[in-house]
Design a protein around this nucleic acid. Structure first.
Lengths: 156, 156
DNA sequence: AAAAAGTACATGATTTTTCATATATATTAT
DNA sequence: ATAATATATATGAAAAATCATGTACTTTTT
């Protein structure tokens, strides 16, 4: 087949890679009873506990109102907690609970194994290049973050 | 911030890059009155006209039932056409119309300009590496395609 | 050549996601 | 200090996406 434009179009190539490998792992997640959006919220909180809701939304790549709803579900499952900030009573910082950690930790192990299997298809140099280039690309997003939201975490 | 796991996790890095740059371009699309899903359907058809619905779904990275609905909307807008296959009357091949082409062509120009602006943040070697590595990764998806669906296009 | 199994696409109910906007609090300007 | 503006999160209606299944047709098996 031709596919002249798409196969060389960066945005499509990125979407394809992201989609293909994410779906692979999401099957494992669902088998563990965790939906992909909840996983994304939980690992972000694991990495950076106490994030304010809006910051969490930006890192998890979801809309604010959606994160409000996802977090409320996770609160219902006692996997995370909401704490109103004392400095700014509009803000809510989100904390992963012990129960949340217990759920997420084995999944991180699985994620690392899965990642290895993905990278196994590449040479060691390619692996190094890929990650380093993706990190460079990530800076564009990081800059938006800085401008938009200097205070990300509750530091009380 | 720490972000120890996520920032090095390939699936997250890919999702971040894909999301960041796609959203940038989607703003341009929406300004032109085209929704992202419709754009994805249309460029796939542009590259490969006459694809059967299921194949189109796989390439556009959408679910079959969703593509049925998207295609029906596009048919309503006279941007694509459905033709029942004569060899296999269950199959429907989807063709982009002249009107569809007229809509999509200037957007492809825009997409190429946007892609250049994204890649401008990288060195020439990084650019070369990135695309070549993404192509290697794409083969995993391509293999699934082959197994699942040998006949992709209506060849009547 | 029937029957059984499989495949392609459509459909409708359900769930998820988005969008616009409300509410509460903070900050800035007067 | 007050008013105006801005920001953080919540909310509910609307739109989009998924899921399970239906229908029509094909292929395979017996």
């Amino acid at each position: 087949m031709s596919k002249k434009f798409i196969d060389n179009y960066l945005l499509f190539q990125l979407a394809l890679a992201s989609h293909t490998f994410s779906e692979e792992f999401y099957d494992q997640l669902r088998a563990a009873g965790v939906s992909p959006p909840k996983w994304r919220i939980l690992i972000n909180l694991m990495d950076c506990p106490g994030m304010y809701l809006t910051a969490l939304a930006k890192y998890a790549l979801y809309e604010q109102s959606r994160v409000t709803k996802l977090v409320d579900q996770l609160v219902g499952e006692k996997l995370v907690e909401k704490r109103t900030s004392h400095q700014d009573r509009r803000r809510v910082s989100i904390h992963i609970t012990d129960r949340g950690l217990a759920l997420v930790k084995p999944l991180i192990t699985q994620a690392k194994i899965h990642e290895k299997s993905v990278l196994a298809g590449l040479t060691p140099t390619d692996r190094k290049h890929l990650k380093s280039i993706l990190k460079k690309l990530a800076n564009r997003h990081a800059k938006d973050m800085q401008v938009a939201n200097l205070k990300l975490v509750d530091t009380t």
